Amino acid sequence: MSGAKDKVVKLPVSFYKNGSFTEGEDVVVREAPVTLYLNDQEFVTLVCSPGELKELAVGFLCSEGVLLKRENLKSILINEDDRLVRVETAGDPAPQERFLKRFITSSSGRGRVSFTFANDSSGVGRVESDMRVAPRDIFYLTDQLEKLSGVFKTTGGAHSAALCTRDRVVFFYEDIGRHNAVDKIYGRCFLDGIPYADKILVFSGRISTEILIKVAKMGIPVIVSRSAPTELAVKLADQLGITVVGFAREGRLSLYTHHKRVAD
């Protein structure tokens, strides 16, 4: 896993304060385009933080419904210098146009959420888990996320995601993109065969429908964020059996769905 120093760079900058400019340096988050080839065909270019390209590529393909089973992943070749990732899979992968357009809607006026594109619905089912977590555990985990977020502390330009049990961080990733950070979690779990039913995803960014769908595909029962969820993400989480916790910071939190999983 790349360290925080690989994701930042120092640049010259002019600072203005109290009516005058001074010259100096500032630490800025790095951004890199990475092209993913799937079965020798150019598939997509992802803009991301350098490092963890294997996890990112696999997690992205899982999110897009291209990779559903570990045995379908034949090989991964990473070329860091040229920013290329080549993935070979068994079978006929989803065509590229499946993930270029997507949306989900509330249907029939009944508040249920329906999927419009196959890559969103593929691999999504109701999450069943008896997991319980106490508010004090949530605050501990969000504090750990903040302590680990070195790139954000240095630059203010990164998102972070951590896969956790109730009492510890299993692993952690930072990236300029909040979707990328979660995809790296997804890819690591897929590659290492990590079970989800007793896990929590702790996240720095807004919980949108896209993030919620990734969590649902992994089968993680609880997502916690220091930020807010969207209305449609909350509706989707309620339908799919996922507990959504927002604004978890400074000894407070907001519990939006499936409250029974959060109790002292």
Rank of each mutant, 00 (worst) to 15 (best):
M1S: 14
M1E: 10
A4L: 02
D6W: 03
V9F: 03
K10Q: 07
P12M: 08
F15A: 00
E25Q: 14
E25H: 13
E31A: 06
V34A: 11
V34K: 09
Y37N: 15
N39F: 11
E42Q: 03
L46P: 11
P50V: 11
K54P: 03
A57K: 15
G59I: 02
F60R: 04
S63G: 04
E64V: 07
L67Y: 05
L68P: 00
L77M: 00
A94Q: 12
Q96E: 14
E97M: 05
S106I: 01
S106H: 03
G109I: 02
G111P: 05
V113L: 04
V113D: 11
N119L: 09
D120V: 11
V124D: 01
R126A: 03
D137P: 00
F139N: 02
F139R: 02
Y140R: 00
Y140S: 04
L141G: 12
L145S: 10
L145T: 12
V151P: 08
F152P: 03
K153T: 08
T154S: 13
A158R: 05
R166I: 12
R168C: 08
Y173P: 09
H179C: 05
N180M: 09
A181E: 02
V182H: 09
D183H: 13
I185A: 07
R188A: 12
R188F: 11
C189A: 14
D192F: 12
Y196A: 06
K199Y: 01
L201M: 07
G205L: 10
G205V: 07
G205D: 10
I207A: 06
P229Q: 13
R249Y: 02
G251I: 06
L255Y: 08
R261H: 09
